[in-house]
Design a protein around this nucleic acid. Structure first.
Lengths: 107, 107
DNA sequence: CTAATATATAACTGCGTGGTTATGGGTTAA
DNA sequence: TTAACCCATAACCACGCAGTTATATATTAG
């Protein structure tokens, strides 16, 4: 039973796949061909990565003629933000002494 | 050449390993035995996971007698926060029309 | 209609990795 | 000193997955 965190973390763990997602975040909507050009892997590999990202809810696809345009769903990163905030919140709630907190940040 | 993002993402991708890190974040310093008790895997497996987390800079170890105490280095999550902020910042800078932005959040 | 293009899928492969058991090295207890 | 304990490492295994090539499907171009 994969949790939402599982899905997002594992989807973004692979460097190639994360690179594709980053390109979509920066460059906006792009076709598979455009993504393949700079991905450093074959077109089928890119299609598979896009499939994983889509299943994880990180991208949307739009078919137009014989090409497929993909866009990043940045809101899908919300669980990631929540998770990191949870981890760091436990931190802050544990040490209310600011000095102690700063000392621990330095180590 | 693994980037800092690579290291953190791949270290946190595995559910068991991420669970161990979460326990350290919530519960503070804990021994290998304590972590093993609730990890659902063998002690050597836990030790290996802790080794990966340590190499990623996500935990610190402290030897005391015959047991090893581990603590979470939450500051090591900073690259993760930076990365998500980068991805979402590109978003906001692209659409300065708030309505357009909200519409896209709904899809 | 035919050829070329764009993408997805199938089938296969190699390797990384998470798991195990067995063992070693160091530390406390008897 | 000997035994029990804690942890790390070694050696091995099984499986998942990222990559490939080949092919199917669909759409545009000639």
């Amino acid at each position: 039973m994969p949790t939402p965190h599982d899905v997002i973390f594992s989807a973004l763990a692979d460097p190639t796949r994360r690179g594709i997602f980053e390109r979509l975040c920066r460059g906006g909507e792009q076709t598979v061909g455009g993504l393949t050009a700079l991905a450093g892997v074959s077109q089928p590999a890119v299609s598979k990565h896009l499939g994983v990202l889509k299943k994880a809810g990180l991208v949307l696809d739009r078919h137009e003629g014989r090409q497929t345009h993909y866009t990043a769903r940045r809101q899908a990163l919300a669980p990631l933000v929540d998770w990191t905030r949870q981890m760091t919140e436990f931190w802050e709630s544990r040490f209310d002494d600011l000095d102690d907190l700063l000392k621990r940040m330095d180590q």
